[in-house]
Amino acid sequence: MAKGQIVAGCLAPHPPHLVYADNPPQNEAYSEGGWETLRWGYQRLARKLKNIDYDAIVIFTPHWQTYIGTHFLGLPEFKSKSVDPVFPNLFRYNYDLQVDVELSEAMRDAASQEGIITKMMTNPDFRVDYGTITSCHLLNPEWDKPIVTISSNRNTHYYSPEVMIEQATALGRACAKAIEESGKRVVLVASHSLSHRHFVEEAPLPEDMSKEHIYNHSQYVWDMKIVEMMRDGKSREVIDIMPEFTEQTIAETEGGGLIWMLGAMGFPDFPAEIYGYQSVIGTGNVIACWDPNDDTREYVL
């Protein structure tokens, strides 16, 4: 069996606004559009992924928050409706997704061997979080690949951002080892924004783009610093500066997704492909992809 490999790593923010703006048949809410910079970026990245041969998507989500270890989806199918608890007016999505349980269990076993507290989630009534649904829908609207969702263990709040870096990096290493041993080709997804301070009011028409802007300039400057380092292939430095970044911008990096993904990829020193940056209800969102293949890596934006 050939060694498995990570064929791409995507930073894929999950504001439900983007699915709402797309008006897919699965979502009950209807919009007049909005947030095109991000949606068009997602569409371009989705087209790229269509041209990559891969077996499964493994996604780390901050909206499945676990305090007792890291949990993995452990049943082959989940079908239900996901309603966003914060933006139920925008996101009521009927999903029907497949899980690569074999890969999920292999990653869980590898993580356990590394001393990480783990748990398989095997309750059939469990509702998959909207972060998973949003990022996966935008990266693969056909839902023709199985996924694995990994929960976000809340190390940043319970201990510190530095502990989160240690734990999420170890989890990333374990997942990479399990992927290699599985023989599968896998796309990793870190599902989150960068800066994450929201406005607490919503425009009467949520997709009214005349009302959309970053919460404050400080968040924008920080986000741009991170994007610049991603462009320059300084992923290790991104992680090094992350505690400060997370604190200063209330960033969603606190969930550990980007750390996990870059850790699994060995902290790549090649440039990230940037597909778009835009605010959503004040938060800063970048779509980025780390393509380890020198032949297919692009300069997108």
Partner: peptide, 13 residues
């Protein structure tokens, strides 16, 4: 609805 807790899903629905 039928709710399942994020952490304590193994205790039941």
């Amino acid at each position: 609805w039928t709710h399942v807790d994020d952490d304590f899903h193994y205790l039941g629905s």
